[in-house]
Structures are given as structure tokens and as C-alpha cells.
Amino acid sequence: MSPGPSFSSRFLFADFVHLFLEALAICLVGAFFGVLLHHPLLWKVVSGQSFSQAVLPMEERHPGEVFLVPVAVEEVGAMAARGAVLVDARPRELYREEHIRGAVSLPLAKAGEEVAAFRKRFPVTVPVIVYCSGYGCRDSHELGARLIAAGYGEVLVYEGGFPEWRDQGLPLGRGDGP
């Protein structure tokens, strides 16, 4: 007669299963509350809506605040074709690896040194679209504010940024040039 699994080994297996189920329960409850709390954000990402609330009614604005107009992925290509300048606010190394085709690099960290050169290259009357690493990335907003301070009149933010552009299979560039 085969002895079969011992009592202790069956106990160990049952205990491991119990432990695994408890750990799974922690993850599932956390995931449930995480999605529940942040479902508006997740929905906006899925549906491609802007969620910066960048354009507030005039009476809600505070003096000195800069509000950047968000631009959707569909409009970015059309605006660039009409002469708007696409600006990549991410670190230069990320730009070299891959960027939106036609974009120029102006990393936020180097904006202090490079905005003057950028201004010589592109007149302040040209519309500028700034992007970085997607929704929630603030570098594009900060760089946009600096460009407005440098005199640019039409500065927009592409909030979906590089990840959205890449994931939609739109044209990419590599290396130092646009």
C-alpha cells in the first residue's frame, strides 16, 4: 500500500495555499481601492481626454498664474504641418533614443541655458507645442511657462506626450536631429 503524502506535507501545502490566497487578497483589495479612487484619471487616459484643467474660467484664475492650453494627439500633427514647433522637454538622452519626429530637444533641466538659443532659432510668433513623458508629467507645463515668460505667445501642451504618440504608432525620430 502506498503511504501517500504525509500529514505534515499536506499541512504544509494547505498552509502555503492559504498564505498565497491571503497575499492575493491584499493585492486585490489594494487594486480595487486604487482603481476606485483613481477611476476618473484612468478613464481620462483611456478616452484620451485632457485632465490638467489647464483652461479655467477667467474668474477662477489667480494673477500671475500661467495656464497652458492642452492639445490632443489628433491636433499635434496638423499643427506641426502648419508650422508649429514641437518641443521635447524630456532629458536629452531620452530624446536621442526616440522622440516625436520633427520635435526639437529643449530639456527642462537645461532650459535656463538653452531658451535664449531656442529663441534665436524660432521667432516668438511661432506656435509651440511642448511635450514630455505623458499625462502627469509636469516638465512640459514648466517648460511651457518658461517659454511664455521668454515671450512666446502661443504655447500649448501635448499631455499624452511621447508614450501616447509612440503607442499610437505615429512617426518617430532618433538621434540628435528632429
Binding site: G34, V35, L37, L41, L42, V45, G134
Partner: peptide, 14 residues
């Protein structure tokens, strides 16, 4: 793309 946001929503709660 989307999973960056899903992970960002779920990970802190876990």
C-alpha cells in the same frame, strides 16, 4: 501606455 497609469493607481494602495 495605459498600464503606467493602472500601475500608478494600484501600486500605492497595495
Amino acid at each position: 501606455y495605459f498600464f503606467n497609469y493602472l500601475a500608478a493607481a494600484v501600486l500605492p494602495m497595495v
